[in-house]
Computed example of a mutant assay.
Amino acid sequence: MARELRALFFDFDGVIVDSIQPKTEAFRLLFQGYPEHIVKSVADYHRLHGGISRVDKIIHAHTNFLGKPLTKEEVKEWSRRYSELVVQKVIDVSWIAGAKEFLHKAKENGLKIFVISGTPEDELKYILQQRGITDLFQEQLGSPVRKPEHIRWLLEKYQLNPVDCVFIGDALTDYDAAAETGLAFIGIQGEVDFPEKTTVLPDCTGLQEALDDIFL
């Protein structure tokens, strides 16, 4: 049976909206007051590990860079402070080139579109609502649930065959989530060295052509 594109699974930051730099700067601000080499290590870790939750990044920074593991309450407080620094900035940032037009066209064409992010789910839904784009996505899913778990749940709920679905992301965690669940993958911009032969685009302007190459 021929493959037929039925559903698209999108990461959010760096794929739909241009929010990587504001989020990196928020991590720098969160750790200001610590030595610059610590701040740089935190910012670099954030940039190179897109797609995982801020909680995991905060825990990693304190455990591995500062040598001071946090209690659960401290993790919660650091996460709250990060949210205060970043939410409005993500609401205000520009679209990734081509993303807005592509999403509206894909919805018009009847494709199922899901967004799966490392952002806390309540915060993700708030940002989408404030940007006025909630209705573009049939499901909006975030942390703490891992992306492969979200994908499996969506495949089952919507009775989708993985071969008819594509994940569009900008991080190795996105690539790994697609590989783990049997989805095709397209990379968008970022600083990641994806495995050889991965389709990688600078933005979303060529996304339709890349999908056509997979399904024609």
Rank of each mutant, 00 (worst) to 15 (best):
D92R: 12
D122N: 14
W95D: 02
E139Q: 12
E25D: 14
D13N: 15
I38L: 11
V166F: 07
L172K: 03
L5G: 05
V42R: 09
E73T: 12
V192I: 14
T181M: 09
L160H: 12
R152L: 08
G51Q: 10
I52N: 09
K23I: 06
E4W: 09
I113Q: 14
H37V: 13
D135T: 09
R81E: 10
I188H: 07
L48A: 05
G169Y: 02
S83A: 13
I113A: 07
K125P: 08
P148K: 07
R28C: 15
V86A: 07
E74M: 08
A171N: 03
S53N: 10
G67A: 05
H150T: 00
D213K: 14
E77A: 08
E209I: 02
H150K: 00
E77F: 13
Q88C: 05
K40P: 05
R3A: 13
Q140K: 13
V39N: 08
L5I: 01
M1N: 09
L103C: 00
Q88A: 10
G51D: 09
A2W: 10
D170T: 02
T198D: 07
K107I: 00
F215G: 02
I186G: 10
L30F: 08
K147Q: 06
G98D: 01
D44T: 12
D122T: 13
L66C: 05
D213G: 11
Y126T: 15
V87C: 05
R131P: 01
R152T: 06
K125N: 14
G206N: 10
E191F: 09
L70H: 05
F114T: 04
P22Y: 02
E73M: 09
P22M: 03
D18T: 00
L5K: 02
K76T: 12
C165D: 06
P195T: 01
P162W: 03
W95E: 06
G187C: 08
R81S: 06
I127F: 15
V145T: 13
I16L: 15
K107F: 00
Y126E: 11
A99S: 12
Q21C: 12
V93K: 00
K197W: 08
K197I: 03
R54A: 11
D164M: 05
F185I: 09
S143Y: 03
L85D: 11
N109R: 14
N109C: 01
R47M: 09
P195C: 01
Q21P: 04
L66D: 10
F114E: 06
T198W: 04
E101K: 01
H60P: 04
Q129P: 07
T24G: 09
G142L: 03
A97K: 07
Q138T: 07
E180S: 06
L128E: 01
R3Y: 05
H62Q: 07
G142E: 06
A178T: 00
L70P: 11
Q140H: 10
V192G: 02
W153Q: 10
K40H: 13
F137Y: 02
R3H: 11
K89T: 11
L85Y: 15
H62N: 15
T63G: 04
E108V: 10
